[in-house]
């Protein structure tokens, strides 16, 4: 534009002064027109903080702002700053500012997340069998007060502890706003408390460590007036944790061509069943896919 204006405004002969004057006026008008719609984006805008865009030119214009969660239209005066309130810039991300007078000019700018004030912390699973490798995992995502994911690298301190043991700490830097960990479950059933903290913010979760499959089911039995009462010894997993009450133990009594079965839940660590067989029987127990010992009882 400037080059074309200068070309047009070259001075020639005195006789053409009137024409030159007229052309010069047009050039100035064109210059003024070119300057009226220039915009300058704010540098280092932060979510939740006010910012302003500078404009050049004269006269009135219409200002538009399009952002991740906002779109607004406003009348502005060219040459003055366009102020954006903190509320208008709550969402982090790319914004596009447009100012239109006789023509339109636009500029894009980025609003960065504010400082982390909240930590979304997801831990999986909610129940984990004891003694398993890499069974517990957690993910932490820092958010600012306007729920923008904080992408700037930050260090998250993961800590996990069980009752009666010292907490274990593991520091992880966020990558693209995410930090994560894997860990083994402990050897004792009970609550595993997992915490994630960043600056002064922390979040806690609890993973219930539960007994694993029963280990070496052992049963005893005796005849009664009504048949046979058979029960397990206290049922524990292979690391010695009592198997939770309610776990089903299937007792099977085989005698001759007949079979009797009872699915009995464990109560207070012991599963007990009553069977009505009278002849000699072989009784076995199973829980899930785990088998126990066999018990032979003679006829009544």
């Amino acid at each position: 534009m400037w080059s074309s204006t200068n070309t047009v405004c070259r001075s020639h002969k005195a006789r053409r002064s009137l024409l030159a004057f007229l052309v010069g006026g047009v050039c100035l008008a064109a210059l003024g027109h070119a300057q009226e719609a220039d915009l300058r984006a704010p540098s280092a805008a932060v979510a939740g903080n006010a910012a302003s865009l500078s404009t050049t030119g004269q006269g009135s214009a219409t200002f538009y702002l399009v952002g991740p969660s906002i779109s607004l239209k406003r009348d502005v005066r060219l040459g003055e700053e366009v102020s954006l309130s903190a509320k208008e810039l709550q969402s982090a991300g790319k914004y596009l500012a447009i100012v239109c007078a006789s023509s339109c000019r636009s500029v894009g700018f980025f609003v960065a997340p504010a400082k982390p004030v909240n930590l979304a912390f997801l831990v999986h699973p909610s129940r984990a069998p004891v003694g398993e490798n890499n069974v517990v995992s957690g993910v932490a995502l820092p958010f600012d007060e306007f729920r923008n994911l904080v992408l700037a690298p930050a260090t998250v301190d993961f800590q996990w502890s069980t009752k009666g043991s010292a907490p274990v700490s593991h520091k992880v830097a966020t990558q693209n706003g995410i930090a994560w960990f894997h860990t083994n479950s402990g050897r004792s059933a009970g609550a595993l408390q997992v915490a994630a903290s960043i600056n002064d913010i922390s979040a806690r979760r609890v993973v219930q460590q539960v007994a694993s499959d029963p280990c070496s089911l052992r049963i005893t039995g005796q005849r009664t007036k009504k048949g046979i009462v058979v029960e397990t010894e206290p049922v524990r997993d292979c690391t010695g944790n009592p198997v939770p009450d309610g776990t089903v133990v299937t007792f099977t009594a085989k005698g001759g061509k007949e079979t009797s079965t009872v699915d009995a839940p464990i109560k207070q660590g012991i599963a007990r069943a009553q069977m009505t067989t009278t002849g000699p029987v072989v009784i076995s127990a199973a829980s899930g896919v785990v088998m126990g010992n066999e018990l032979r009882l003679g006829a009544e």
Partner: peptide, 26 residues
């Protein structure tokens, strides 16, 4: 808790193969 007692493979009156037994409500 329901016990399944005296299960055995058998043939019913119509000559069909069946598994019969007794349910005991404990």
């Amino acid at each position: 808790v329901i016990g399944v007692m005296n299960q055995k493979l058998d043939t019913d009156a119509q000559g069909r193969s069946v598994l019969r037994g007794e349910l005991l409500n404990q």
